[in-house]
């Protein structure tokens, strides 16, 4: 029995310290997956915290015979991240927002330190990944960052394995296309 399995059993038996250890072991990974999918630290924290809370509260539903704990947690994290992406897509049509907009509220802006951190972490591949369609981004992130197998990707995103394979391939092709366009633009700028 692995260390994580033993911790899961302890948490099932009611040991809260085991829950804390499970949380701390998976905190950064869940956050990073959400960050890669959402491209934003604040939203990523919301998605990851929600996913970890759900996983710990519903640990009874986790079936170790069917999947690994990380696969299960990533499945929940992907689902929570999709919710946030959907929220972003819905136009902000709201009566209460309209009423509250009349009172002056300062817009949320990242702290200078956060800004610097975000700028530092940006690179071309990252920006290209953020331009991908959400389902292709999920496939690319799970394969290239998560190192998941196609079987695991299909479980996490909830599609047949062949579809998971096609998404990874298509994601790569799109990514290569975006990167080639970016390269061309950069070259053009240099020439000018």
């Amino acid at each position: 029995m692995s260390n994580l399995e033993a911790l899961i059993d302890s948490w099932r038996a009611g040991d809260e310290r085991a829950a804390e250890t499970i949380y701390n072991l998976n905190r950064e990974r869940a956050f990073r997956l959400a960050f890669a999918l959402l491209g934003n630290a604040e939203d990523a924290e919301e998605a990851a915290q929600d996913a970890l809370t759900y996983a710990l509260l519903n640990i009874a539903q986790f079936d170790e015979k069917r999947s690994k704990f990380t696969t299960w947690l990533h499945m929940i994290t992907v689902s929570r991240s999709r919710d946030i992406l959907r929220k972003r897509r819905i136009p902000g049509l709201s009566l209460t927002d309209w009423l509250s907009r009349r009172k002056s509220h300062p817009e949320h802006t990242p702290e200078p330190e956060q800004k610097a951190e975000l700028n530092e972490t940006r690179n071309t591949v990252w920006e290209a990944v953020q331009k991908l369609q959400p389902m292709l981004r999920e496939a690319i992130v799970l394969r290239h960052w998560g190192g998941h197998t196609y079987q695991e990707i299909s479980e996490i995103v909830g599609c047949p394995m062949k579809t998971a394979q096609s998404r990874v391939r298509l994601g790569y092709q799109k990514l290569a296309q975006i990167l080639a366009e970016t390269d061309l633009q950069n070259t053009m700028e240099v020439i000018r």
Partner: peptide, 20 residues
């Protein structure tokens, strides 16, 4: 792609607000 993506994503750290 794997290296650059991992390098960027693994730099990201959650804030202390995200705690047990």
């Amino acid at each position: 792609i794997s290296n650059e993506l991992s390098a960027t994503v693994n730099q990201a750290v959650p804030s202390p607000r995200m705690s047990f």
